[in-house]
Write a protein that binds this DNA or RNA. Structure first.
Length: 492
RNA sequence: GGCGCGUUGGAGAAGCGGCUUAACUCACCAGCCUUUCACGCUGGCAUUCAGGGGUUCGAAUCCCCUACGCGUCACCA
């Protein structure tokens, strides 16, 4: 059986974004599913935009998501180095070969010339591509131009009149005409190879068997295919996964970008999303599970994943769904983990001190436990807590209910006032006991008791259990609200 | 403009020629559960698959055309 080798090859020009993370995930899943190798390398040939910080960010995000790689950057392996800028000699050898065989040539055209050429072609209604002007420059002429200080680029000589068929694992056979592709640049004037060329050498020398990447690369594939052919290498299997779209304010769907909200993995981390939720959500972007279950851990995804359930049509980034998934994972998480993820948000909001004492930690734990069913990410925590600690307002619906049930509500609240005045502090157990007493003394129970209390104390129809809320609000605020309500009830 | 890809409900999305009177999930609505609500559970929610033609006994599924959307045509990846 063929040994699967897949890779994720980002360029370190910014933080890992959602689309990249999804590509990484699909490669990871297919590799793991087939007991293969998952490799991470860096495509850092764009000197202008590449940065060490970006590389670190990408690696951190991948690790945070749980996608650890078997080979590549930082971890090493037999096919290193794993940064393109450290592999220049590999590319050089291939360039020399192509040059020697006449499959590539130096081009001295200036930017201005090229732009003029392109414009002329467009005005004639032609498909703009390089004319091949420098294809047959003599050695002498080349030398002459060189001495003039012109630094040439190297172009690949694209064979004419050929058909390139890409056997794409998700899209089927896709055919391109080589005549639609101009002689493209494989080495820039500074001597650094360009992506389309370097990627081929990397995939070949690293023994990559499958390439899963975004659809935006589909039209690049024929370029790479002709290079594979010219060099006499076999192509890996390609799978182009659909774009991720976002909906803008007008409701139009376009490629996911900043205007649709956060696009980087770290932004979601900072908003208090759980890594397993992100992974789960990402997997659902363009891939569909077989059964009705949609919640999967990374390991479960490895078992479930298969390319034939990857969709051709674009995936839409549905924030509501992400929130739902995250909420589900928050509800499942252990108290320790909830505290670990939630505490930083409480600290940032000043709800808990920088170096909390034990009782503050307990408070935080209880608060998070009380609210975990009502949040979709941890960033929502402080807001909700402040809402319960702040001023209360009753909406029209609540007031209607009070009027309809005035006697019951007031009876309950009068009893509550007495009970609260009788205690110094409040916790869930004390609150429950108070409630029990009120129930016994007034004979009011069930919805009449619970619902009117909730409505009077929070102004809400639904929400966390009041005994848990007691911890957030505390005895004094509970009492104040009770008094306020009683005063307010007079006006009804 | 050339080339390439796509188009299924309020939303995401299955479906690959008959088993589809179109799964599943989110949202919404109703009921059950819980001494309240949420969670969970049960049920409801597209006679229809962008539009038009064709192939076939039979099409969301195959072919053609039209429309719309998106991607790509860089000394960026």
């Amino acid at each position: 059986m063929e040994k699967y080798r897949l890779r994720f090859a980002p360029s370190p020009t910014g933080p890992l974004h959602i689309g990249g993370a999804r590509s990484a995930l699909f490669n990871y899943l297919l590799a793991k599913k087939n007991k293969g190798t998952f490799i991470v390398r860096m495509e850092d040939t764009d000197l202008e935009r590449s940065s060490k910080a970006s590389e670190e960010n990408i690696k951190n995000s991948l690790r945070w998501l749980g996608m650890n790689w078997d080979e590549g950057i930082d971890v090493g392996g037999d096919c290193g180095p794993y940064r393109q800028m450290e592999r220049l000699d590999i590319y050089q050898a291939a360039v020399d070969k192509l040059l020697a065989e006449g499959k590539a040539y130096y081009c001295f055209c200036s930017e201005e010339e090229l732009a003029a050429e392109k414009e002329a072609q467009q005005s004639r209604g032609e498909n703009p591509h390089y004319s091949g002007k420098c294809r047959h420059l003599s050695k002498e002429r080349q030398e002459e131009l060189r001495t003039q200080g012109i630094k040439p680029v190297i172009r690949f000589r694209v064979p004419e009149g050929e058909e390139v068929v890409i056997h794409d694992l998700v899209r089927g056979d896709v055919t391109f005409e080589t005549d639609g592709i101009g002689d493209f640049i494989i080495v820039k004037s500074d001597g650094i190879p360009v992506y389309n060329f370097a990627v081929v050498l990397d995939d070949v020398t690293m023994g990559i068997t499958h390439v899963i990447r975004g659809e935006e690369h589909l039209s690049n594939t024929p370029r790479q295919a002709v290079i594979y052919k010219a060099l006499g290498y076999e192509m890996p299997k390609f799978a182009h996964i659909s774009l991720i779209l976002g909906r803008d304010e007008e409701g139009n769907l376009t490629k996911m970008s900043k205007r649709h909200g956060s696009t980087s993995v770290i932004a979601y981390e900072q908003q208090g999303f759980l890594p397993e939720a992100i992974v789960n959500f990402l997997a659902l972007l363009g891939w569909a599970p077989k059964g009705e279950e949609e919640l999967f851990t990374l390991d479960e995804l490895v078992k479930q994943f298969s390319l034939d359930r990857v969709s051709k049509s674009p995936a839409v980034f549905d924030m509501e769904k992400l929130k739902w998934i995250n909420g589900m994972y928050i509800r499942k998480a252990s108290a320790e983990r909830l505290l670990e993820y939630g505490l930083p948000f409480l600290k940032k909001a000043g709800l808990v001190k920088r170096n909390p004492k034990v009782n503050e930690m307990i408070w935080a734990m209880l608060v998070i436990d009380a609210l975990k069913n009502y949040i979709s990410c941890f960033a929502e925590l402080p807001e909700i807590i402040k809402k319960y600690q702040g001023d209360i307002t009753y909406d029209a619906g609540a007031i209607e209910e009070f009027k309809a049930n005035k006697e019951v509500v007031v009876t309950v609240m009068v009893a509550m006032k007495e009970k609260l005045e009788g205690v110094k502090t409040l916790d869930a157990q004390i609150y429950k006991d108070l409630l029990k007493e009120i129930q016994n003394e007034t004979g009011i129970k069930g919805r009449d008791l619970y619902h009117s209390l909730r409505l009077a104390k929070t102004g809400e129809e639904q929400g966390p259990d009041l005994d848990k809320l007691a911890v957030i609000m505390g005895r004094d605020l509970m009492l104040k609200r009770t008094n306020d309500f009683l005063e307010f009830a007079e006006t009804l």
